[in-house]
Design a protein around this nucleic acid. Sequence first.
DNA 1: GACTGGCACTCGCTACAGTCGAGTGCCAGA
DNA 2: TCTGGCACTCGACTGTAGCGAGTGCCAGTC
Lengths: 340, 340
Amino acid sequence: MGLDDRKLAVLRAIVEDYVATQEPVGSKALVERHQLGVSPATVRNDMAVLEEEGYIRQPHTSAGRVPTDRGYRLFVDRLSRVKPLSPAERRAIERFLVGAVDLDDVVHRTVRLLAQLTRQVAVVQYPSLARSKVRHLELVPISTTRLMVVMIADTGRVEQRLVELPGPVAAEDVTDLRRVVNEKLVGSRLSDTPPLVQALVDESTPQLRPAMATLSSVLLETLVERHEERIALAGTANLTRGGLLDFQGSLRPILEALEEEVVLLKLIGEAEPSTTRVLIGDENEIDNLRAASVVSTGYGPGATIVGGLGVLGPTRMDYPGTIATVRAVARYVGELLAQN
Amino acid sequence: MGLDDRKLAVLRAIVEDYVATQEPVGSKALVERHQLGVSPATVRNDMAVLEEEGYIRQPHTSAGRVPTDRGYRLFVDRLSRVKPLSPAERRAIERFLVGAVDLDDVVHRTVRLLAQLTRQVAVVQYPSLARSKVRHLELVPISTTRLMVVMIADTGRVEQRLVELPGPVAAEDVTDLRRVVNEKLVGSRLSDTPPLVQALVDESTPQLRPAMATLSSVLLETLVERHEERIALAGTANLTRGGLLDFQGSLRPILEALEEEVVLLKLIGEAEPSTTRVLIGDENEIDNLRAASVVSTGYGPGATIVGGLGVLGPTRMDYPGTIATVRAVARYVGELLAQN
DNA sequence: GACTGGCACTCGCTACAGTCGAGTGCCAGA
DNA sequence: TCTGGCACTCGACTGTAGCGAGTGCCAGTC
């Protein structure tokens, strides 16, 4: 088990070279390209140990070595420093994000930016409703028996839903409904609302009760229970970089997984404060993504987290660079949101 | 030039066989699989003529024939009948679309349905704002100098925008603004609003004028000029069907094109009433899509068109089936929208 | 004149053999 | 513990040969 420093250096060198060239790396080439201070033969011995421990493997005899998922894991955990971003990248981020006019715009710009900087598939979750507070609820009568409910969250998200009322409701009653709903719900977290919403119905006047019952059930159902998360995606074309070598030749499972919102949420939606999560290959719970790695983190104004963002790419990816970019973008987006 | 009936039958058989098998089709196989009533030799002669006219070609000598874009065009225009949908498909459409709770839901369901039925990439444009009428404009104060404008269109689309006011505005003034804006704009087409919006400013009281000016410029800019179109996409995984044979081996350009909203809009956004547009390979104006075909049509409540939808796939696609499905889905969606 | 059967020809595909070379494992020696 | 040397492995590439689907052409028939 004892991996001395040199063996670790060899592993690091293998990962770096393989990521750069996409070709199995041999002992001779390694010694030439890195100052390891030892001969190829020694490196070979180290490689044999690393292979036995499961950090690298040979695609076939008489070929160089390639890192395994486990090897990447060790590399990420212990052998790499997060690269500081280049000034050019910082500028790119700022330039890209400045001038966003609303939340939609912010999210779209962010996801494109991430895809472009990392040259990978980028995923951004809209601020989660579960973590948002109600800023305002607007009721707009569409007809006498139809209401459009527009909820504005403090994170900037706006959700609307059509409500079919059980019977006609007068304009004054709508005003009443609006007032009551806002008085009770504004400022509260959506995930905490169920009792509040229930109270709404109990406390309404008999006249308003039927309408309020429908309204509150729609609110509960669409905003809390089936809590509507949104996701933006960009950069799928990046999957085709590196020919067919990555993803063992078939993009199919990856593309399929990317179409499932549930899957995406699972990938990036479980963010914890100020952590960057890296899932490498097999560590991924989703079978379709066993050939991919995901780097994700949470973002939000200040220290709170309102959503997740991240990128997905081949296990053979530039982890230090990707991690740095994901973090930086998340931080900038957080700042942007804090300004609202 | 004279293509007699048999030659046309041969072309039709070639297209059908090639679409089904994805392999160049030879004279012998053709005669066996279709009742042409002539010998392979005769078919060969016909093939030679068809090739000379540019309807089919040989990938290489000593291989069968493959339709050219021009061949598909002739097939679509003159040799195929639109297949009626199977009852199972009709049921699938109804089952899928029933129960949609709002426009977002309708669009998402539609695009997934289309992708699933045609087994191709599906694209659905949200009802265009340019073709929508204003149903209601809501102004929600976020702070004393910030307003959220929520526009609800008669097509069900809801757009919101944050407006930074030049100075603080009192609550009563917001009420005034809301009343005025709604009085003037409700019921009008957004594309017709520029003069109306201008009038809004001219007619406001001095007190409201600065706020109204900002508000109206935002309205103009975001809803009319840079008229915000939305697009939903699904089924990209279907691009990987048929191995690497379709799209001459690289999905890259296709995926890139699909990421550009502008491109997608161009593809499906120029719908004309009750026409199904078929663009085959080279006919496509977008270079990246020269290896693909697009089948698109408009949809909307009743006879009006509010947006486009369609699918994109390899030139080697089942045109009759795809056309039928696209039309049917568009019709159902139209009916669904008409109910609102 | 249109169609057919026959025939020589083309050429991609597959299989097989041979060569090359990067890379390895192992071992004796420093 | 490291190193240089050496035999070995095996994938990648090359060249050759045979197979067969498919063609174009032509002479013959209805």
